[in-house]
Nucleic acid binder design. Structure first.
Lengths: 234, 234
DNA sequence: AGAATAGTGTCTGTAAGACAGTATTTG
DNA sequence: CAAATACTGTCTTACAGACACTATTCT
């Protein structure tokens, strides 16, 4: 932290959110359609300006509550990183953003109780194919990469599920996030043996045609050791 | 990225550096003694203000060059994270910083050709015992945690070594960074089997009293799969 | 020769991956 | 009963960890 006064400048800071969920078997992200320039009419990640005496995490939590209408303390939020390229905002060369990754269950949204902007779910593949405003393509890619690593080493995969879920639900999370197929028997053994990952509730969920699946809830552990193994080709 | 103008504010942004190396068998960090308030006379991480049209990575690289007098392109730089608590700088509630981790070999410094500030190496343990200015204790802890993870999954451990190094040198890096003892034979087999991690130069380095060790250089791989296994109790 | 350090071989336990087989439901 | 889905058992292979052993240098 230099003490020279030379060339010190003030910049605008925002927090942007990558809210991921799984909808219809696809990894999906919450996007907003921009009402104003720059990039009016294009899709972008939700986000907002750092205000008052907030930390950036506070900003992210506040925006998350505004977008989803839900209690932000129920979400898992991780810092993805800072994006500070000088021309990422064409109207002001000095706007930097800090991106946060939020992982959510399949919500009954879009965004009851949100602010006026049109928010919608989009599959990550579509979003990257179509392209997003600013440098949000890169942010989204980085956030998805982070999510892939996080589900491997932590128990956040359960944050994609409802409060009660089956092992099949959890396996679907890994298959969608990693884009692979996993062996059902081995997955079952692995997650039931991982201490603190999931706990049986005692309940069962009927299946259309077959043996009902036991229900589980998230366990107390945060990290997984040994981690979930991702099939090679990382 | 909201388009409302309400409560938008400008803040001062800095990049702080956690430059780690191994000196005398201890994980060490480059610190500067602050000349001015706040925290005049205390030790802090080197850093400086975002200038002109730089990205924060540019700022970090520039500061790194100023502190070490070396070509910044030779260093490995990783973003640790953003620190934006509202009162982390007692004189201005709106100074946020982005911390970067740099990994360096044991340099012939302190800081030939650096700017006027008194820079010195300190062991990480001492730095955390004594305490640093601002929130730099927490930043240092986070950066060390990141380094511990990075050496596990990437080949950056070689960045702690000189251009040519022995397997014993590399093992010492892991032992110091992780604070553990590793089995020599197993470590040797593991790193020589890891594709692209290290390459033999053909040379040998004499030892004071014993068989000379073969010399290696860093290989082309960036990531290690399978990763280096860290003894349990993570 | 003996001490010291580098490097190899071999055994064992653990866990991942493949997959056969069993259990529990609906029609 | 057949079909479908959930779950269990077992075999194989890969690899981490322990550690005995060999190799090459110096005094």
């Amino acid at each position: 932290m230099s003490t020279t006064r030379r060339a010190r400048q003030k910049v605008t800071v925002t927090a942007d959110l990558v809210i991921l969920t799984i909808r219809d078997g696809e990894l999906s992200v919450l996007l907003v359609e921009r009402a104003n320039d720059p990039f009016a009419g294009e899709l972008a990640l939700p986000g907002g300006f750092l205000r008052g005496r907030e930390s950036l995490l506070d900003t992210a939590r506040r925006e998350l509550a505004e977008e989803t209408g839900l209690d932000p303390s129920t979400f898992h939020l991780d810092q993805v990183g800072v994006y500070s390229a000088p021309d990422r905002d064409p109207r002001d060369p000095r706007v930097i953003t800090c991106a946060y990754l939020a992982i959510a269950p399949d919500l009954p949204m879009p965004t009851a109780g949100s602010d006026a902007r049109a928010a919608r779910w989009s599959s990550v593949a579509d979003a990257l194919r179509t392209g997003l405003a600013f440098d949000h393509d890169g942010i989204l890619r980085d956030a998805v990469d982070l999510a892939r690593v996080e589900v491997q080493f932590t128990t956040v995969a359960t944050a994609f599920c409802d409060a009660e879920f089956t092992i099949g639900d959890l396996r679907a999370v890994y298959e969608v996030v990693w884009g692979v197929e996993l062996d059902k028997p081995n997955f079952h053994r692995k997650v039931t043996d991982a201490a603190g990952f999931i706990e049986p509730t005692g309940g069962k969920r009927p299946t259309p045609n077959g043996r009902p699946a036991a229900l589980y809830r998230a366990g107390p552990a945060d990290s997984l050791s040994p981690p979930m193994m991702r099939p090679r080709s990382s």
